[in-house]
Structure formats: C-alpha cells, structure tokens
Design a protein around this nucleic acid. Sequence first.
DNA 1: CGTGCGCTTGATAGAAATCAATGTCAGTGG
DNA 2: CCACTGACATTGATTTCTATCAAGCGCACG
Lengths: 256, 256
Amino acid sequence: MNAPLRVSPGPAPPGLLTVMKGQCGDCNTGGLCLSTGLDSGSKMRFDRLVGQHRRIAAGDTLYRTGQPLRSLYALRCGFFKIRRPGPAGDQITGFPMAGELLGLEAVGTGIHQSDAIALEDSIVCELPFAALERLFEDIPGLHRRFYRLMSCEINREQHLMLLLGHMRAEQRMATFLADMGAAYAARGYSPAQFQLRMSREDIGSYLGLTIESISRLLGRFTKLGLITVDKRAVVLTDPQRIAEMASGFSPCSPMV
Amino acid sequence: MNAPLRVSPGPAPPGLLTVMKGQCGDCNTGGLCLSTGLDSGSKMRFDRLVGQHRRIAAGDTLYRTGQPLRSLYALRCGFFKIRRPGPAGDQITGFPMAGELLGLEAVGTGIHQSDAIALEDSIVCELPFAALERLFEDIPGLHRRFYRLMSCEINREQHLMLLLGHMRAEQRMATFLADMGAAYAARGYSPAQFQLRMSREDIGSYLGLTIESISRLLGRFTKLGLITVDKRAVVLTDPQRIAEMASGFSPCSPMV
DNA sequence: CGTGCGCTTGATAGAAATCAATGTCAGTGG
DNA sequence: CCACTGACATTGATTTCTATCAAGCGCACG
C-alpha cells in the first residue's frame, strides 16, 4: 500500500460509468475479492464464471427479500446498503464497498433475506451461484476462500451486535466513523477524509438511533473538534480520539 | 416429529453423564448436525473424523478468545453460551443447543473471536478443522452443508441485530422467549415449557438490557398472564400473544 | 418561485439505566 | 440445627439518555 492516499471521491457525474468489460486481472478491488490468491489458471476459469458486469444505477435494487438466490455479486466498484425488513422497522445491516461479496445471507435457504440497494452508480460482477458451487469442486482454494469470507461476515456482524447491544450513542458514532475510515484505508483512500454515501436516516437505522440523534452527534463531535462535516463530506480532524472513543475495533480480513 | 413432546429437563444430576462413545448413528441431535444428509459411506468417513467426544462440565470453557482454531465442535448434548469481549463490556452472542456447530467465527482468521462456556454438563464432538477441510475435498455434500450452515449463522445474527437495533425491551424479551421455545420445539421438547439454562445476567447481555430490566420484564409478563416463572423454569401460558409481541420471527434452517 | 426532501435544532416525554435496598436459596461450617 | 455467606434475583426511587414532537433551514429540482 505505497500509493499516495486519495480522498474518496464525491458522487460520480452521471454517464461516467461506461461499461467496464475487463476481466478479473484489471480489477482494482485490491485483494478483497473472492478470486484473490488463486493461481493464474484458476483465475482464468473464475473469470469465465463471471456472467457479466452489471451496472446498477444509484437507488436501484440488486436483489430483494424473498427472491430466490440466483447469483452472488462481487462489488467491483460503487457502494451499496443492505436493508433487512423486520417487525419493528427495517434495519440497515451494512454498507458494502468495492471488493465485497453480496448475497451470502441467501446461501443457507436459497432465498434472499434482505434488499441490496445501490447508493451510487455501481458495477457488480455477477457470479451465478450454481456455477460457483460447481467451480468449488474444481478449484481447490476457492471454497476455502469462500467459507472464510463467510466467517469474516459472521465476525463483522458480531462486532455490530456488540455496538448495538452495549454501546451508547456516542461510542456507536465514533465506531461508525472509525470503521468507515478503516474501510476507505483498506482501499487506498484516506482514512480521515471521505464522503458518506448514505443518508442520515440510513446511518440511524444502521446504528440503531434516530435521524435526530445522528444529527446531534455529528454536531457535538464537530463542536468537540473531532470532525468537520459539510453535508456528506466528513473529515476526521482528530482520528486518534475518535479511535479511542470507539476503542477496541479490530477488522477481520481472511487468511488468503 | 410424532414423538410426544417432553418438557426440557432441569439441570442434570451430577454423574449422570457417563461418557457416550457412540458414533454419529446414535446421535440424537435430529438432523441439525453437519453430517445430516450424507450417504452412509460418507457418514462413516465423517465418523472417523470425529476425534473424540469431549465432556465439558458446567462452567468450563471450551475455547477462548485469542486461541488458535484447532477444531470445530458439534454440540452433542448440553447447552453453551458464547461470549464476545468488547470495549463496552462483554456481549453474549448466542446460546447454542444440541446439534449446533461451535467455532465458526474462528474460520476466517484462524483465531477464536469469542469464548464458549458450558451452561450445563455437555458433550461435544471434536472436529479437527484441518481434517475437516481435507474431508471437504472428498465428500461432495459436506462442504455445501458447511457453508449453508454458516449462511444460516449469518441470518441468525442479522435477526439479532434487528432485535438489538430496533426493538424495545418488551419486544426483545418476547422474541427471546419465542425463540427459546422454537429452539426446544426443534429438538422435540415443548415450545411452551422449558428451563432457562442461563442467568438473568446472561439474558441481559444477550438482549442488550440490564439484569434489573430482565427481572421487571419477567414480572410484567407474569402479571399480564403471558407466562409463569419459577426461578429458571418458564411456562409460556399464552404463547400466541408472546409470538404476536415478537411478531415476525422466522427461523432459518438449511436446505439439506 | 414554490415544493419537497434531507437535515438541523429546540423542547419535552418516556424508556431503560443506575443507584440502593431487600429477598431467596444453596452451601458451609460452627 | 441454625447462623452465616455469597451468588442470584426482585423491587423501588431516581436519573439519564435517547426518542418523540415540533419547527425551521437550505438546497436541488421542476
């Protein structure tokens, strides 16, 4: 990771995202994809599996709760939110970014258990699940990589359970900001300066707080000199103290 | 499921649990185990994999946060709690029962991310992970079964995230009671009459509430005629209204 | 220029936490 | 046999945090 840190861009100007028809070799998701670590022969076969690169416009839905699982989706570039309907209102369970794999919650039942909604114009690699399962038999490292990714997802969610179950609002927000920074950092962007792609309402649902609380917390953090906020552009001016408030976060990346 | 419903037993008298040396064929976990659905030949090989049946006394720890993953554990009989340490106090992330697979959170990193503590004298089948991974290559259905289980675990946790993020205390408790009933029902016990194996404190940590709130909620539910409680023995006298309060729970069991 | 959406800010209410005291019971040892 | 202890649980009084209610702002868009 020696490239200079970039600030994560704002919303893409419409029309910029012409179809990228490259293969996995061109992929810039930087070691986060399912295919990472495969030898070149296996990678070619994995390439052939990828049905197509689908372009999803901001606001569009990739899959919905109740739909049968056809494909998993590797997020090539863009930004999603995952929404799970529940008896007490919907919950946002995650904000996947480039390189992440979408749809794992459907593998157990064959039915999607949540909605995936693009927060900006995005491109996904479609991985037909039946074909992927067949490929597991042939490519030795792939299925290992697959269930390790799932285990990491389990950890991500347990991290969130901790947040929702045992943190107060302030600590939740600090954790959220720190996590976002870490996610950007993992992709070569600045960990301290980024665009929020989601609305305050989405953040609220994600953190188990109301939109008003989110607003107040951002205001309070600003007054404390921890951050500056301008609409959805955030700068962590004191990342260390934010990390201290969040205190104890450790990301989970799979062994390759 | 035609056997008459039994009431889940209280704590086992000490000394009752002599070592059960049977193979998977004798196992009474009823289709919840990893080996379910294998043909008899594969089952035999799976049998050989099972290193030993370890007896874990109530209060003892099966694995701890930070330890390297050596084995997964299929819970043959007994009851555990899973505790995840966090910056804002520990969180109980689950109460696995007979038939469930313990240790999946460690698969991604190779390091355990939580503690598994027996709530009563239990017996686990030890599945050395390296050997299990080798077996995946040979037994076609096993690997599929494995990652479907993991996907179900993801769903279980998202269900909990919903609970912690968007439900009020009363609804959380109703959901907990309904879920416990369902878990017993899936094992052939009465869904409306069971022993809680965990302390109020454990329930509180699990539901993101204090021990006092748990106590008050149980009291309130009793006054409302929904349940009767005597120490840790619970009877759901109005399971339907409890289900309505929880409203919308659907368990996730893998396609075999 | 209005209209609507996303966001902020203030006042108030309410749910659960916290603080504090008491109760119950199993186990222990005098 | 009974008093003592400690873990676990219940109950009440009070505080605190966050939700809720309400109003207004700013900006994009038709």
